[in-house]
Amino acid sequence: MLTALGGDQIARMSAVHVRRKNLHAIVCIKSVPDTTEVRFNPETNTLMRDEVESIINPFDTYAIEEALRLKEAHGGKVTVLTMGPPKAEKELREAVAMGCDEAIFLSAREFAGSDTWATAYTLAQAIRRIGAYDIIFCGKQAMDGDTGQVGPGVANQLEIPQLTYVFKVREIDLEGRSIQVERLLEEGREVVETRLPALLTVVKDINQPRYPTFRGIRTARRLEIPVWGAAEIEAAPQYLGLDGSPTQVIRVFTPPKREGRVEMIDGDSVDAMADALADRLLGDKVV
C-alpha cells in the first residue's frame, strides 16, 4: 500500500503525525533562603539575602516534578522561569538538572522591590514573550513571603483560568484543551475541570520530587540561559519593581516571644500526671 503513495503524500502523512499535540508547560519558581533564621538590614528594611545559601522554594519543586511527569506522559517540553537577583540563576540550573528543557531568567534592576502585584505582572509579561503554552505550574506559595498571591496574579494578568492548591492532576486532554484536577480545600477535596491553557498552583502532597541526575547536571551546566530585563518583556516601566508595587513595607520586627516558661507536670504515676494536666486545661477553659 505504502509504495502506491507518492513521496508527497508520505511527507504529508508524517507531517500529520508530527503535529500530534505536544505539551508545553511553564514552571514559575522562586529562589528563597535555605533557612527560616533570617537577618534583616534595619536601614532599608530589606532582607540580607547574601548571607545564606538559597534553594528552590520547596513548594516549587513539586510544581517542577508535576510538569516533568506530564512531559514524560505526553511528550513536549518544560520551560522554567524565575525572577530574582543574579545568583538566583543557580536555582534555574538546578531545575534544568531535574529535567526542565529550557530556562528563562528575569533579572534586572528595574524588577527590584517588586511586591506580589509587580511580580505577577513581570512573570506574565515574560510568559507572553515565551509564547504558546498549555499549562503554567507554580508552588502554592513561597516559603519566605508565604503569600500565595503570585499564582492567581499571573493567571489574572494572562486572563486564563486558575486552579489553586492542586493535590492531583486527574486528567489532561491536550487536543480537547481541558484539564481535571483535585484541589485541597479546608473541608475536603474539590474535583474541578477547566479549559487549557490554565495555571495550577500545587500543594506538597501531589508528588515526590526527583533529584537532579548526573546527566541533568551536565546539561544544566552547559545550557545557555537568556537573561531578560524590562525591554525584553516589553514591560511598562511604571508597573515594575518598587514603583509598580501598590504595597509598601513600613516596618519589620521580630514577633513577641511566648510569655512564660513551660510548666512541667510531674507525678507518681501516669494517671496522676494526666489528672493534673486535665485539671489545668479545664481551669484554663480551653476544653
Partner: peptide
C-alpha cells in the same frame, strides 16, 4: 486567597496576605 489574588490583580491594588 484564591479570590483575593485575582480581584486585587484586576483592580491593580495592594493585597497583604494572612
Amino acid at each position: 486567597r484564591d479570590l483575593a489574588g485575582s480581584v486585587a490583580t484586576d483592580l491593580y491594588t495592594g493585597l497583604t496576605a494572612d
